[in-house]
């Protein structure tokens, strides 16, 4: 599943992550949650890819694997970062598994993450300055005066002005939207070229949500940042992403350009997701999603299609074949379904 054009910033191939269950200190785990299973995609520089799915589908795990907060069980991630403004850099294309020790610290300058919960992602005892300057401090970039200037500058950039009024506030002195701006500032202060945004707006109110969304878009354009935008909300992904990948129980089931995916969903799960979104438009009447049952945890799942149990279109073939491979049904529109 690749995006035509220049060499991708991040190339993910067959990425797999399994979490062991009920493992004691001296016992070998007997079963695994297949949180991410054979996921592949490409992310170009300055591109925004949406990773959409319900809770527990593995989307956050993919994000953490990409910024190396977790180590994968299998598969490859290859990065090709541009030379950074400061410090040493990871030259050419590097494999995630080769980034260790000193290199990991340099890697952190290139790949950052914005977390979901603005109320929990800041240390309540530290000030806005401490929080934003932390990446600079642990990376040993600049001196105290230089950091203060840099932090003030980035506060202005994320719309917290005048910076002086915010520098020494603690999280409880900020609103949800303001906290998320601080979180964005912390992620961007060392000038990354790739940011994983894990549901940055899902805990915010409608009116602050749009502000954060447009801020993130503006900064991506201005600073040339690529996003992996993780969300459960297709409507938000529509506004934030060039392409959308839909995940279901650890697998990417469909991936396409945003408008193409929304207008012409091919996978039955994508269709169900789309028809379940409520809308305030009194003119819009929607069909109920036609899938059954509840989401389960992918604990040692059978080899067949992950969606088989809930699929309205399932056939004999789906029952007896392995999980369908991704096929390009239309240009740049990939679907993993035998019946699509």
């Amino acid at each position: 599943m690749s995006n035509p054009g220049s060499a991708p910033l991040v190339a993910v191939d067959g990425l797999t992550k399994r979490f062991p269950i009920a493992a004691g200190l001296f016992r070998k785990p007997t079963s695994f949650i297949h949180a991410v299973d054979d996921v592949s995609f490409r992310l170009g520089g300055s591109e925004s890819l949406g990773l959409v799915g319900e809770s527990g589908c593995g989307k956050t795990t993919v994000g953490k694997l990409l910024v190396k907060l977790l180590e994968p069980t299998g598969g490859n991630i290859t990065y090709r970062f541009p030379a950074p403004a400061v410090g040493g850099h990871l030259a050419g294309s590097v494999e995630a598994s080769n980034i260790r020790g000193r290199q990991l610290r340099v890697f952190r300058r290139q790949a950052q993450m914005i977390f979901q919960d603005p109320y929990e992602s800041m240390n309540p005892r530290r000030t806005v300055y401490d929080t934003i300057a932390e990446p600079l401090a642990v990376q040993g970039i600049g001196d105290v005066v230089g950091r203060l200037d840099r932090v003030s500058e980035i506060l202005n950039l994320v719309g917290l002005t005048p910076a002086g009024a915010f520098l020494f506030r603690r999280p409880h002195e900020l609103s949800g939207g303001q906290r998320q701006r601080v979180a964005i500032a912390r992620a961007l202060v060392i000038g990354p070229s790739f940011v994983v945004a894990d549901e940055p707006t899902s805990m915010l109110d409608v009116s602050s949500r749009t502000g954060i969304m447009s801020l993130m878009q503006e900064l991506a354009e201005r600073l040339g940042i690529a996003y992996l935008y993780i969300t459960h909300d297709l409507a938000v992904a529509r506004y934030m992403c060039h392409r959308i990948a839909v995940m279901y129980l650890g697998k990417i089931v469909e991936m396409a350009e945003t408008e193409e995916l929304l207008r012409n969903p091919l996978h039955p799960y994508t269709r169900a997701l789309l028809s379940a979104v409520p809308s305030p438009d009194p003119m819009r009447r929607r069909e109920p999603p036609n899938i059954e049952g509840d989401l389960s945890l992918p604990i040692d799942p059978p080899a067949r299609c992950r969606f088989y149990d809930r699929c309205p279109m399932a056939t004999e073939r789906c029952a007896n074949s392995p999980h369908p491979p991704a096929e390009e049904k239309a240009p740049t529109h990939w679907v993993a379904c035998y019946e699509a």
């Binding site: 009116s207 749009t210 969304m213 819009r284």
Partner: peptide
Amino acid sequence: SFPSISGEKHELETLPGEP
């Protein structure tokens, strides 16, 4: 400011300030 999934993609408007 409500992002919609159907119909034309309208511009989202941001309400300035805080409650």
